[in-house]
């Protein structure tokens, strides 16, 4: 049981860092950005490339975060800004186009085969549960990233501006907050967090151009469970989702009912993520019609 809990925390950490970026963007520009998943993949590859130049992990990840943040700003200027007058659905569709182009671009540059980060891990035993030094590093990084984001949003002028922008764009503009610059900053943050999350995900698994599909479902499920525009909600969503998934595939249901061991095959992990999202959406008491929490 402890193992299930540990697995849940590690997986939730990988998902949460990517998920908060989607929420952040949604709260300001009001559409679910599919290209965000590609920012995560791109970030993973940037880190890999920077590692290839002989840089250490912290430096490589920082460079990757900055680069991906800039990419997110460029995409905003070239695509989303000109489309700002359209309905959210239209922007969602356009964001898928961006994602598709990025995906092929990554595969064209780095090749279709998987790549793996070289990390030496130590294994620790907690009773009969196992955790690795890499797991601990991933969880610690995630917590640190969340604290930084929280401080940024609630303890700085920029954060106040961003939250004002998310609450009411017009009002924020009349108060003299430059919305375009703040939006650009928001995209930078979203891109940087995606890069960090993508790097953590790739560290625990591997890098490959089609890893976007492995990230897409759980991340969007987490964000949706949390209510799309709430950053704390995205983190909570990631935790709930991860716990649900790991319990479903980690508990020996056979032993509960009979003497024979039976597990739900782990390939149903994504099915559980999606089903959880659909169920939460269908049975959520709060009305979600007006496009998220305000």
């Amino acid at each position: 049981m402890l193992q299930i809990l540990l697995n849940s925390i590690v997986y939730a950490s990988e998902i949460a860092v990517i998920a908060v970026g989607i929420s952040l963007a949604y709260s300001v520009v009001r559409f679910a950005n599919f290209a965000h998943i590609q920012y995560a993949v791109l970030g993973g590859y940037f880190t890999y490339a920077a590692r290839g130049l002989g840089l250490g992990f912290p430096v490589a990840t920082a460079i990757s975060a900055v680069l991906t943040g800039l990419v997110a700003i460029i995409v905003e200027r070239l695509v989303f800004h000109p489309l700002r007058g359209l309905r959210p659905e239209a922007k969602m569709i356009a964001s898928w186009g961006v994602a598709l182009a990025f995906r092929s671009g990554v595969a064209a540059v780095f090749g279709g085969a998987a790549r793996v980060f070289d990390v030496e891990t130590d294994t620790y035993l907690l009773g009969d549960a196992v955790i690795t030094s890499l797991d601990l590093a991933v969880v610690a990084t995630t917590i640190a990233a969340m604290v930084v984001l929280q401080l940024l949003l609630y303890r700085t002028r920029i954060g106040t501006g961003l939250r004002a922008l998310a609450d009411n764009r017009d009002l924020a503009a009349t108060r003299g907050i430059p919305p375009d610059r703040l939006t650009a900053l928001m995209w930078f943050l979203a891109g940087a967090f995606a890069a960090l999350g993508g790097t953590l995900f790739a560290l625990e698994t591997r890098l490959q151009p089609d890893m976007d599909l492995q990230i897409l479902l759980p991340v969007f499920a987490a964000v949706t469970i949390g209510g799309l525009s709430s950053i704390a909600g995205a983190v909570a969503g990631a935790c709930i989702l991860s716990l649900a998934q790991n319990i479903a595939i980690g508990v020996d249901f056979g032993a509960v009912l009979s003497s024979r061991s039976w597990f739900l095959p782990s390939q149903f992990r994504d099915t559980i993520a999606v089903a959880a999202m659909v169920l939460v959406l269908c049975f959520r008491p709060r009305q979600l019609r007006s496009g998220g929490v305000r």
Binding site: N7, E204, D210, Q214, S261, F263, P265, S266, R269
Partner: peptide, 19 residues
């Protein structure tokens, strides 16, 4: 029998450990 292309196979391997 694991499904290809999963991000990790910890749960599968844990079942194996317990057997």
């Amino acid at each position: 029998a694991y499904s290809e292309g999963q991000p990790d196979y910890r749960a599968d391997i844990q079942q194996l450990v317990s057997s």
